[in-house]
């Protein structure tokens, strides 16, 4: 198939950046979206032009490294990661516009690569259970009702890609944060630190410059793992409880 591309090119964090047009002939519809970009890059190298920088690693939809905005949608038209999108989702002759995640807490490094270290700092602020190696009781000492375990698992599926932030008009990371708070908060092991966790993570979230949630739901629609909006409800409920608890 033939494709025209408009791709965001930016030499470095300080550069202004611009959209650049490219054309590709003979793209296989069996190729993945990123393989299409590989093909473009091979052709650019042939012509002596610097290839387009973009992130990816597993290319299986699990590491969360990839992610670009495709025709205005985070990860593109299907509900999956950019790496799992295939060219058969497009038509011959289509124009495809490709941009990096756009959010202040995710500054562009180069072309389509952004810095998502703010997510790591949110986890550092409390997204864990304090259990030093070697101190654990037998795994069967605390049974966990299957329902709770399943809900914890559902929330734990988040891959930290940042699509929720890219899709949100407020650049809020509440879906990402809510998934962690729900994952750990559903488990008995997560209870002792539950209140501190939600307060500290929220403080860090705001400090990083992520916006507040106004319940538009764009995040959940863009999420390749289908994390539901109700993890944000759980985040809010935990936050309120912890806040009141703190005031007593």
């Amino acid at each position: 198939m033939r494709i025209s591309l408009k791709i965001w090119r930016q030499d470095g964090p300080a550069d202004d950046g611009r959209m650049v047009d490219y054309r590709l002939e003979e793209v296989s519809e069996d190729s993945s979206f990123l393989e299409m970009l590989d093909l473009l890059n091979e052709q650019l190298i042939d012509k002596g032009e610097e290839p387009v920088a973009f992130d990816s690693d597993c290319r299986e939809g699990i590491c969360g490294m990839c992610g670009v905005v495709i025709n205005g949608e985070a990860h593109g038209p299907e509900r999956t990661t950019t790496c799992q999108l295939h060219m058969r989702s497009f038509d011959d002759g289509d124009e495809i516009i490709i941009e990096p995640w756009r959010a202040d807490p995710f500054p562009v490094i180069k072309d389509l690569c952004v810095d998502r270290s703010s997510f790591d700092r949110i986890i550092q602020s409390g997204g864990f259970i304090s259990a030093n190696t070697g101190s654990a009781p037998d795994a069967h000492a605390t049974p966990v009702p299957k329902e709770d375990a399943d809900r914890a698992f559902m929330a734990a599926e988040c891959i930290g890609c940042g699509a929720c932030v890219a899709a949100c008009p407020n650049a809020s990371a509440m879906l990402f944060m809510g998934s962690k708070v729900t994952h750990l908060g559903e488990l008995p092991q997560g209870q002792p630190e539950r209140e501190a966790r939600v307060l500290q993570m929220t403080a860090q979230h705001d400090l990083e410059g992520f916006g507040g949630c106004t319940n538009l739901g764009e995040c959940s629609r863009a999420c390749p793992k289908g994390i539901p909006l109700n993890v944000i409800s759980q985040l809010n409920a935990d936050y309120r409880r912890a806040g009141y608890g703190g005031r007593d």
Binding site: T133, A136, K146, A149, L184, L187
Partner: peptide
Amino acid sequence: QCVAQGVPFAREYGG
């Protein structure tokens, strides 16, 4: 160790 950290392994109905 993993269970103590909150790794959500598959469980049976009995927990």
